[in-house]
Design a protein around this nucleic acid. Structure first.
Length: 515
DNA sequence: TTAGGGTTAGGGTTAGGGTTATAGCCGGTGCGTTTCT
């Protein structure tokens, strides 16, 4: 490569300067080094693999957690004139998938889900390609989702090995040192070069408001929305509550456009609500944690937590959706003494109980003894009352321990079986303890008397920048002194070209340079 | 002759009232699912 990186940047994106962190990562990647890149949101993380994809020979595989993210990225790349990118997922029908499988060598960039990387046929095709780089986008998902919710995230190390150990690039905006360590461990990439940038946000003020009971929370929010009609996100931990709260707030503040959003909604409704919020056609979203990843709205001024997330990591991610344009923004957490009940319940139901595990293992022994080696998964789930996550967690553990291979039971000795039951019991206890400790960290932060910004970020980075505007309720923040900038865009022009332009970009929720 | 209104019977759904038992909170995040290359 004789040309400078700046030459390629200019050639492919039209920009003449790299943003913070990009150049170092791209340089390492082009030299074949594996990297962990923690870059703030909006710093253009995707350029770190999209530029190498154009320069390097061979295929770049990008693991992405959401189909909507893959589709957005491919759409944007095609709009920039890069046609050798494709998103491979269940949105494609059989023939389309076959097309991609058979023409893999014609692409430079393929986006896939971790689940898709368990498809034996796809893996077989992938092995025949020369893979120049293996990317894990939103890499914190490995740590936050992999252990229980989406175990295929923990199988990526095997995939990497299987396709010939290409260099690995793991990217995330918010990964605490614990999560960073976990990412490196799970990917089995001890030699990763770290490019860690601080994740504190100097334009967000932190406020905790303690109320006597939950019913005062909505009153407080309604009063706040009366005074501040700014783009607002309100986080709940229950789908039902997002709907009820939206309804109640609509009657309290009828001049605001308020909607709800959660994972149980129809796909088309989700897309519609998301796009309306992006385009300032909605003012307030009552949502669960389903609303967030990949949403890059710049002018969110207020993020409210009605319920408590289960861990500080999620809290930081959700808080970070405010003030992406750098303007003064506020995070408000509404608290009362029952805060921990709901997150505790969520942690409990994520993992199976000892009793369930023991009964399942007895049942499996019985199956093997009667020479029945296939498992009827839906029967098992109903019989032992596993939810989806619990069963997936257990199935993965049984695979790890060699009791299930290629969906079939394996005959093992009874002493081995006892050891495995014991192992899984210990693991469940360890995971629950870890998760409860993370919840306790967050609850301690609520009751801490120190500076909120410092106490939130200092455990994760060496220094916390001083607040650009107001800091927090412990450093003298008051809503009276908060004058949020209003930037809601509307179609105001009479010019048909402007109107067409804004219509065209409805629903585009990526920045131009994220690339 | 046809369009459109009215009637009727039968099946299914929902709202609302009455009764009884008992808990208080009842829960989040998404991918894949087809084929013999």
């Amino acid at each position: 490569m004789n040309k400078t990186l700046e030459y390629y940047l200019e050639k492919y994106t039209g920009h003449n300067e790299f943003r913070t962190g990009q150049k170092e990562i791209i340089t390492d990647v082009l030299e074949g080094k594996s990297c962990l890149g923690i870059l703030p949101t909006g710093s253009g993380k995707s350029l770190c693999y999209q530029l190498p994809a154009r320069v390097l020979n061979g295929l770049v595989v990008v693991v992405s957690p959401l189909i909507s993210l893959m589709i957005d990225q491919v759409k944007q790349l095609k709009a920039e004139g890069f046609r050798e990118a494709v998103a491979l997922n269940s949105f494609l029908d059989y023939t389309e998938k076959q097309q991609v499988y058979h023409n893999l060598d014609q692409y430079k960039l393929v986006y896939v889900s971790p689940e898709m990387l368990q498809n034996p046929y796809f893996l077989q095709r992938l092995r025949k390609q020369s893979i120049s780089l293996f990317v894990v986008d939103e890499a914190h998902c490995i740590s936050q989702w992999g252990h229980e919710f989406r175990p295929d995230y923990l199988k990526l190390d095997t995939v990497i090995q299987d396709i010939g150990n290409p260099p690995v690039l793991a990217l995330s905006a918010t990964a605490t040192p614990d999560v960073q360590k976990d990412i490196i461990k799970q990917l089995n990439c001890e030699q990763m070069v770290k490019h860690i940038h601080p994740m504190d946000r100097d334009n967000i003020a932190f406020v905790v408001k303690t109320v006597e009971s939950d019913k005062y929370k909505l009153d407080y929010i309604a009063a706040l929305l009366h005074s501040y009609q700014v783009p607002t996100m309100i986080y709940f931990s229950s789908r039902k509550w997002t709907e009820q709260a939206a309804e109640i707030l609509r009657t309290h503040v009828p001049n605001l456009r308020i909607a709800f959003y959660h994972g149980g909604m129809e796909q088309t409704d989700r897309i519609l609500i998301q796009q309306q919020f992006m385009n300032d056609q909605l003012d307030v979203i009552c949502c669960t944690s389903a609303f967030g990843m990949g949403i890059n709205k710049k002018n969110v001024r207020l993020v409210v937590h009605y319920h408590l997330p289960t861990q500080v990591e999620s809290f930081i991610q959700e808080v970070g959706r405010a003030g992406r344009d750098g303007e003064a923004s506020v995070n408000l957490l509404l608290s009362n003494e029952n805060d921990q009940l709901l997150p505790k319940q969520l942690i409990e139901t994520e993992l199976p109980t000892h009793g369930q595990i023991t009964m399942l293992m007895d049942y499996l022994r019985h199956l093997v003894e009667s020479k029945e080696l296939t498992i009827d998964e839906s029967l098992v789930s109903t019989q032992f009352q596993f939810n989806e996550t619990q069963w997936r967690f257990l199935k993965y553990q049984l695979e790890v321990h060699g009791m299930i291979k290629e969906d079939r039971l394996v005959q093992i000795s009874s002493s081995d079986r006892k050891a495995i039951v014991n192992d899984i019991h210990l693991l469940v206890d360890k995971r629950k303890k870890l998760k409860l400790a993370k919840l306790t960290d967050l609850i301690n932060w609520i009751h801490d008397k120190g500076c909120r910004r410092e106490r939130l970020f200092l455990p994760f980075q060496e220094q916390v920048r001083p607040a650009k505007f107001q800091c927090c309720d412990h450093c003298g923040f008051s809503f009276e002194e908060w004058n949020p900038t209003i930037t809601n865009k509307r179609i105001t022009s009479d010019n048909w070209e402007d109107m067409l332009q804004s219509l065209f970009f409805q629903g585009e929720h990526h920045e131009k340079q994220t690339s």
